[in-house]
Write a protein that binds this DNA or RNA. Structure first.
Length: 857
DNA sequence: CGGATCGAC
DNA sequence: CTATGTCGATCCG
């Protein structure tokens, strides 16, 4: 996939693994065979620092594998048997809630950047070419791929493989423009489509298909060959498009791969439907059917007509499968998995795990060490995997092996970090390094500003000339966003690193600055909601309690509820006996909230207080900014005090440096006498690589575009929530509160704030329990669980209606489809979370079944 | 929290 | 000579 994969050093010294893509299927074509390619690459690579580092990384992976195998060897049969029961229990649950009702499409432009460049420069059409630079390629055309020239390969190596290779520099504006055109088409099939990058998107066309059934044929009829394929609506059915041009304006991207024209429209067809379809074409009119395949074919046709570029697509009941499918008939093809359980399992059966998104080079290798290469293997070893991997990992594996994935397309939540980094030729002068650091901070500040973000954690990333990467972070008690603010933190980290290395200089090839720990708008929003709830609830509540609640609910400014950091900070504040008993941190500790919208809780608890927690000085004329600056200075000047340890940058650094010294000796111990000072700009190519088959680049603007999609964020977007008290059950067990005495049963924590009724659905028998008493319910679950794991497994009928509704959406009382199979859907949500924040955004990915699993354990 | 690592594009 | 950049997630300490 990525470069690393291709250059992976095999454990047994067999040299680079190499994926050939389409190289090997065209006998007699120009190109190189696998062995030659590998040989050339090896020659170009061996002995380089990069190669050494790859070897090292590879060995680390091997060690991990060894450790894992040793762990495996110590497992007993009974352990595995037990695990088997538990895993199958979950599998059963997942199977039961499999949702086949959605039609998800993954669309992927073929060799996007290269295709665009070829389109715009016909001279390139029949030549091997790549987009990128001498140091890094983003993508290559299919001709170049025959020579082993792939995305994420340095240009100079590509040149060795293919001396005639044309390398075209990136032209993002162009790609963006084309991307926009394509997205316009996407939006007609799913206005909520999810762009992944400039050339790739997920669509849920379920609704479109339903509507499409009612469409008259005219709406599915298209003219071939107008530069802009137009729908043959009544008014323009007499459209004056020149038949001449219709001669496939498609680029000859793939000589032997036909473009989408009536006469050659056989999709190299692994699927018959591809073939039959085009009898409907008469002259230069195409009519598409109403099926999913036809709709997608139509979409691809329109893309090609509009942009002269081809796309590939996958159609399946969930995102994971759709993505795998889109790769199957690439380029310029499509593949469908019908919404049929059997079809899914057939497809999954021999699927190599590496094809699955989320399974990368390392995971593949680890699993291979266990003899797992296909999804069938993955399923068979599920018990073992549950014992060797983390919960999240093996849950993921289980989903994959069952062919499950997200059935709902969601936009990502808010961004969690932002960064910028730069690669350059060796730099060892501290002065230059500070300068660069400042520049990075400046760039980052600009980006932050564009999105109005401010964060509390600054991370410095350094890569030395041996390719060793080191990151050092520092979290401060206030938010930073300007160049100066970021730099003041970053430079301290850099200083520490330079001091640590001295008298040797740092010999860097890359530096990056990242900021995270954002305090963002949504959060403010959440805050006001929760404070509203709290207030409406109990004005009599003591301030401190409310502050606590508010803190939990907003998850901010300190994301971890009970984190070490928070505790320290709370302690510190108490020690400072500032103002009231409130430990509300938002005001005291992070007065940084520059927005006026201080929450109501805040306001009630205390007024903004600009007393410096370090020197205790107070200035009436301080504004927030001045105040923050002051604290910053204070922190970097004042001697450490017990109370302040955790916020002191130096201390943090000292601690991390200790670690660094032990674990990272190699980083800076290289002794050099001569110091090269080079031009920073030298080789500061910023050429993101791309997938071997797909272009991958996401520039920052795109990322932002994705995050700021025009589509409004629906605060409740995927809350298919089962307010299932099983969660409570789980929580109690965790903290040992479980009680058999009903009277002692803790009332649901949500009772105070959440206005919704709690419905108890047993996770085992799936039957709603007619009680509102948690303890009663818990007893039922226990009984249910004990009486029948095996029994239930036997009863399990895999052919049951997968659409059987099993969850109840409590908020509106409607029944929703079971969705446990949806990896990113919170199938069970802690009531606490609900109560905290009814509109809270669900974490981007699935913690989904964590509780269930813990439950079963 | 901090740091390293993985995976994706 | 010459091997990316950005982001999210997770794991471990």
């Amino acid at each position: 996939m990525d470069h690393q994969e291709e250059q992976e050093i095999a454990p047994s010294n067999e040299g680079f693994q190499f994926r050939m893509g389409l190289n090997d299927n065209k006998a007699g074509m120009e190109g190189l065979d696998k062995e030659k390619i590998n040989k050339i690459i090896m020659e170009a690579t061996k002995g380089s620092k990069f190669y050494d580092n790859e070897l090292k990384k590879d060995q680390q992976v091997n060690q991990r594998i060894e450790k894992m195998l040793q762990q495996k060897s110590q497992l007993t049969i009974s352990q595995i048997k037990k695990a088997q029961v538990q895993v199958d229990k979950l599998a059963l649950e997942l199977e039961r809630s499999r949702d086949l009702s959605r039609v998800i499409v993954h669309v992927d432009m073929d060799a996007f950047y290269a295709a665009v460049e070829m389109r715009d420069n016909p001279e390139l059409k029949d030549k091997p070419m790549a987009v990128g630079s001498m140091s890094m390629l983003s993508t290559s055309n299919y001709l170049a791929r025959r020579f082993g020239v792939r995305a994420a390969m340095p240009g100079f190596i590509a040149k060795r493989l293919c001396p005639n290779l044309y390398i075209v520099p990136l032209n993002f504006d162009k790609y963006r423009a084309v991307s926009k055109e394509v997205r316009e088409i996407f939006s007609e099939y799913d206005p909520n489509f999810l762009p992944l990058s400039l050339d790739e998107a997920y669509l849920d066309i379920t609704d479109h298909l339903e509507e499409r059934l009612t469409w008259p044929e005219e709406r599915r009829r298209f003219l071939v060959g107008t530069g802009n394929s137009m729908r043959l609506d009544v008014e323009n059915s007499t459209a004056k498009c020149e038949p001449e041009e219709t001669q496939c304006t498609s680029p000859e991207l793939f000589e032997d791969f036909p473009t989408f024209l009536p006469d050659q429209c056989h999709d190299r067809s692994r699927q018959d439907t591809e073939r039959e379809n085009k009898e409907r074409t008469q002259e230069n009119v195409l009519v598409f059917g109403t099926s999913a395949e036809e709709a997608v074919r139509e979409m691809r046709f329109r893309i090609e007509q509009k942009t002269t570029l081809t796309a590939s697509a996958g159609i399946a009941p969930n995102m994971m499968l759709a993505k795998v499918c889109s790769d199957k008939n690439k380029p310029n093809g499509q593949y469908i998995i019908p919404h049929d359980r059997q079809a899914v399992t057939d497809f999954i059966k021999d699927l190599p795990i590496r094809k699955v998104p989320g399974i990368g080079k390392v995971t593949e290798k680890m699993l291979r060490a266990l003899g797992i290469t296909t999804c069938t293997d993955l399923y068979q070893q599920r018990a073992l995997l549950s014992l060797l991997f983390s919960d999240t990992s093996w849950h993921n594996f289980l989903h994959i092996s069952l062919g499950l994935g997200s059935t709902r397309i969601e936009r990502d939540g808010e961004r969690k970090s932002m960064s910028t980094e730069r690669t350059f030729s060796e730099m060892s002068s501290a002065e230059e390094q500070y300068e660069l650091c400042q520049q990075l901070c400046k760039d980052l500040a600009e980006d932050l500003n564009k999105e109005g973000l401010k964060g509390r954690t600054v991370t410095l990333k350094l890569k030395n000339i041996k390719f060793e990467v080191k990151t050092r972070a520092s979290t401060v008690s206030y938010v930073v966003s300007t160049e100066d603010e970021i730099f003041s933190v970053a430079k301290e980290i850099l200083k520490a690193e330079i001091d640590l290395a001295s008298p040797e200089p740092l010999r860097l090839r890359l530096m990056g600055v990242r900021i995270s720990g954002f305090l963002s708008e949504n959060e403010k929003h959440q805050k006001s909601i929760t404070s509203f709830l709290s207030l409406s609830k109990a004005t009599k509540t003591k301030c401190s309690e409310m502050a606590d609640k508010s803190d939990q609910a907003t998850q901010a400014p300190a994301p971890q509820r009970e984190s070490f950091f928070n505790q320290k900070r709370a302690a510190r504040q108490q020690g400072l006996e500032q103002g009231s008993t409130s430990s509300e941190q938002n005001v005291k500790c992070a007065p940084i909230e520059q927005q006026k919208e201080i929450t109501e809780v805040d306001q009630i608890c205390e007024e903004p207080d600009f007393t410096c927690p370090i020197c205790m000085m107070k200035q009436s004329d301080w504004d927030l900014e001045a105040f923050n600056k002051h604290i910053d200075q204070c922190l970097s000047k004042s001697p450490p005090s017990d109370n302040l340890q955790m916020t002191k940058c130096e201390d943090v650094l000292a601690a991390s440096n200790d670690k660094a010294q032990k674990s990272n000796e190699g980083f800076s111990d290289d002794l050099r006498k001569d110091v090269h000072i080079k031009n920073l700009k030298n080789k500061m190519e910023t050429v993101p690589p791309s997938d071997d088959l797909d272009d991958f680049v996401i520039d920052k603007n795109t990322m932002r575009a994705i995050h700021n999609q025009d589509v409004p964020l629906n605060p409740c977007k995927d809350e298919i929530i089962c307010k299932n008290p099983m969660e409570n059950h789980q929580l109690e067990s965790d903290v040992g509160l479980k009680t058999t005495d009903e009277s002692k049963a803790p009332s649901a924590p949500s009772s105070s704030v959440c206005h919704e009724e709690t419905i108890f659905i047993c996770p085992v028998c799936n039957i709603r329990q007619d009680t509102s008493n948690l303890a009663v319910f818990n007893r039922h679950v226990d009984v249910c669980l004990n009486k029948g794991i095996l029994e239930e497994l036997q009863e399990h009928n895999p052919n049951q209606d997968p659409r059987r509704p099993i969850k109840t959406d409590l908020r509106n009382g409607t029944t929703v489809r079971g969705n446990a199979g949806n990896r990113s859907t919170a199938r069970t949500k802690r009531p606490r979370a609900m109560q905290q924040n009814p509109t809270s955004k669900k974490p981007k990915t699935n913690r989904s079944s964590l509780t269930i699993d813990a439950f079963f354990k």
